[in-house]
């Protein structure tokens, strides 16, 4: 039982971490808190549904869905945010908030306001026994996928030139351009990565619920915002730490809170988060940013 809870906790934390990381990558480069991140997740969910309806095999459908999330993120930057480059943080934040609302309306009217069932392969809902423990296949896959994604991303950011340039751009964008690296490449890559992560998170989310609805991305991304801020806005390790922390606390509270208090879980978790911010206003692992006079 306890092992099962641990698995669930890490699995949920992994999803939050992927989402928070996507938010943090974009924030570190362009200073935008992307409210429409959740809609990228929803879009990937619908793409999976469509691909399966078209009869694509499951792995291919997942590939299509995740790519859709990534491409949509890049398109979103081109259409909605690029005209605003250089605008204030507040304007960017509000624009993404409006884009998010608009996309929700589009999903509600263009597809359906009601949840659509997604036919997940049977093996994903099973469980396997491990000595005395019974462990769900879904959460286990979720952990493996999150871990792989984090490792791959870390490798990309450490090893590739573009990845290194992105870490540098978070610190000093102008100087990165002085090295001959185009600004548009950095920004497009940031959105692409955030879309990829949102798409992956969507797959893990759908796998556990087997349905898609217009508000699917809403709640997890809200949590991811908070994870990103607790971790340290714009800090990538912070986002991962914040995501796991939030996921683990949520699941553990869910498991341990007495039934009478359980419905208050979110309020308790978030009050804790605000308390953390009081002690560390810059977050758990603050972002590095060059101070220029």
């Amino acid at each position: 039982m306890f092992a099962q809870q641990i698995i669930n906790a890490i699995s949920l934390g992994g999803v939050y971490a992927l989402l928070a990381l996507g938010l943090a990558i974009v924030f570190s480069i362009v200073g935008l808190i992307n409210f429409a991140h959740g809609e990228l997740m929803t879009l990937s969910g619908y793409a999976l549904l469509a691909a399966l309806v078209f009869g694509l095999p499951f792995p291919l459908a997942v590939l299509v869905a995740v790519s859709c999330g990534a491409l949509a993120a890049v398109a979103m930057e081109r259409i909605a945010f690029r005209p605003m480059r250089g605008a204030s943080v507040t304007s960017l934040l509000l624009t993404s908030f409006a884009v998010s609302s608009l996309l929700k309306v589009v999903f509600q009217n263009g597809i359906s306001a009601r949840p659509q069932a997604v036919a997940m392969p049977g093996w994903m809902t099973g469980a396997f026994s491990f000595g005395d423990f019974t462990i769900g296949v879904g959460p286990s896959i979720s952990i493996v996928v999150s871990a792989l994604a984090l490792i791959l991303l870390e490798t990309f950011l450490r090893r590739s030139v573009t990845g290194t340039a992105m870490r540098a751009a978070a610190e000093d964008f102008d100087v990165v351009r002085l090295m001959g690296i185009p600004a548009s490449r950095i920004i497009a890559t940031a959105f692409l990565l955030s879309g990829l992560l949102a798409g992956l998170a969507a797959m893990l989310w759908v796998a556990q619920r087997a349905s898609v609805d217009p508000l699917m991305g809403f709640t997890p991304v809200l949590k991811a915002f908070i994870a990103a801020v607790v971790g340290g806005l714009g800090s990538l390790p912070g986002a991962v730490a914040g995501g796991f922390l939030l996921g683990i606390i949520e699941v553990l509270l869910q498991a341990t809170l007495p039934a009478a208090i359980a419905p208050y879980r979110d309020a308790i978790v978030l009050s804790g988060v605000i308390a953390v911010l009081l002690l560390r206003p810059q977050g758990l692992i603050p972002a590095v940013r060059v101070q220029r006079s």
Binding site: T164, A168, E171, V175, L178, M179, G180, I181, V290
Partner: peptide, 25 residues
């Protein structure tokens, strides 16, 4: 190539990575 005032090296990156970005082209 411009070497900007105040050096503006990437403080959180290693010397190796700083050099690597310089050679990114």
């Amino acid at each position: 190539a411009l070497v900007p005032e105040g050096r503006r090296i990437f403080a959180s990156l290693t010397v190796a990575d700083n050099l690597r970005l310089g050679g990114a082209v």
